[in-house]
Design a protein around this nucleic acid. Sequence first.
DNA 1: TACCGTTAAATTGTATGACAATTGTGGAGG
DNA 2: CCTCCACAATTGTCATACAATTTAACGGTA
Lengths: 265, 265
Amino acid sequence: MARTFRSLRRQNLSAQVVREIGLSIMRKEFQPGDALLSEPELSQQFNVSRPVLREALKVLAEKGLIESRPRTGTRVRPRTDWNLLDPEVLTWQYEVGPDPAFLEAICEVRLMFEPMTARLAASRATAEEIETIERACGRLEELVEEAEPYIEADLAFHSAICAAAHNELLQRIVATLAAPLRASRLVTARLPGANRRTMPLHRRVAEAIRQGQELAAEEAMRELIVLTTEDVHRALGYSGTGSDLPLSTCPGQGQMPATTREGGE
Amino acid sequence: MARTFRSLRRQNLSAQVVREIGLSIMRKEFQPGDALLSEPELSQQFNVSRPVLREALKVLAEKGLIESRPRTGTRVRPRTDWNLLDPEVLTWQYEVGPDPAFLEAICEVRLMFEPMTARLAASRATAEEIETIERACGRLEELVEEAEPYIEADLAFHSAICAAAHNELLQRIVATLAAPLRASRLVTARLPGANRRTMPLHRRVAEAIRQGQELAAEEAMRELIVLTTEDVHRALGYSGTGSDLPLSTCPGQGQMPATTREGGE
DNA sequence: TACCGTTAAATTGTATGACAATTGTGGAGG
DNA sequence: CCTCCACAATTGTCATACAATTTAACGGTA
């Protein structure tokens, strides 16, 4: 037996099979309704034993991509059931073809939770966490001319802020979104001056968090995300109106409950 | 062999093992660093074959709970690596002991996402989607006196709005958070008049979305979430100050880019 | 002819046993 | 005391067989 793709074995066999099948599903090589060969056939096709293949199918089922039932076989589930929050699914999604609509979705989601995350961070960050954020911001300034290293530093910056918000769930969301975000930044990073343009806002965010100014941190972060969203749009060659995306969330109506006071803690 | 827990077999053996081990990890029966017996021992303990046990371990590894390596065995990963966005993990988390801090985290995340989701829905909902939302709201009014059925209707309401936002990621996040939410609502639903209290706001949200009033929808949804958050606090026996949680996100500073106009589409 | 129950085949689910690959530990040798 | 090697324990993989389940076809009956 050839074990064709065993050459690049740096991980489990089942993991390789998972990736192969997962990618082929992303490429829409199967109709959502049905298909996928039987386990014996698949195991033969991939040159692996049936237990290994079954482990792979279990993982794919866990990701919501497939569903196995006796007699019926394993069917590909509709896209709405896919676990889009799974890092691997996200990565595959991006590999088979960077979807502008998906990037748009990510930007929207970031715009929803990052500003308020910054606000929580300003309210709750400990001394060490503030220190970490400041250091990350410093590294950002150092690497402003670089491309890839800057992306990592940027992710570290946002991740540090998220950690300071003391909300497990948030941290998980950020960690999940890191993969596609990294990929998207690879696009925007090519834009000349994009990094430098967002630098002042990064500083403002870090500064506001350090001083515990909740609203200032929230607003600065919002502007920052808006800016990077625009960069994404430019990189995708949008017309640039952006009027479809609500960029802010400041109601001119509706009284706020006075539960927060600026600067004090 | 006894196959002790085969009595309640309505699902796979591996699924049962997954649940058993997953729950025992949630109960912190293992130190994050190490432990878990070897595969042969575990398979004997659960009265299943090794392939079945391995499938279960694969699933648990997929959820970020464990990590298997040759010679070392399978170790329990630190809590920060757990995939808290996994529905099953979320459910187990809640089963072993409803954590107030976790409920708090969920409320915070909802407060981040749902208002802007409503806004997007107001901007993008199609006629059919509006119809679905209205119907869900109607059902809500019918069931206002019930307990459990109301919860399901409430989830359907929010889910419908989320679908109208046309953002895959959002839909996934909301769907994921629905599980623990359902559990938490089982607590708050006991509060007398809680359902009736939020009824007007539900109507306002639906109405705003129907008329395409983005800001109104966002604001109404924000108030709605604030209200339900307060209910959660009351159900948990909080003091009720709520000053720790920023309940709004209306900056009194910072000029907004004029990208949205009320009512027009 | 239409309908319903039975049967049978196909597929997943489970079990067993054996061997290979990997890796950490301890022991032997420098 | 350090280095290197061999060993042992554990996961990783394989092959095969059988059980359980479910769909679908078939045939019997009203």
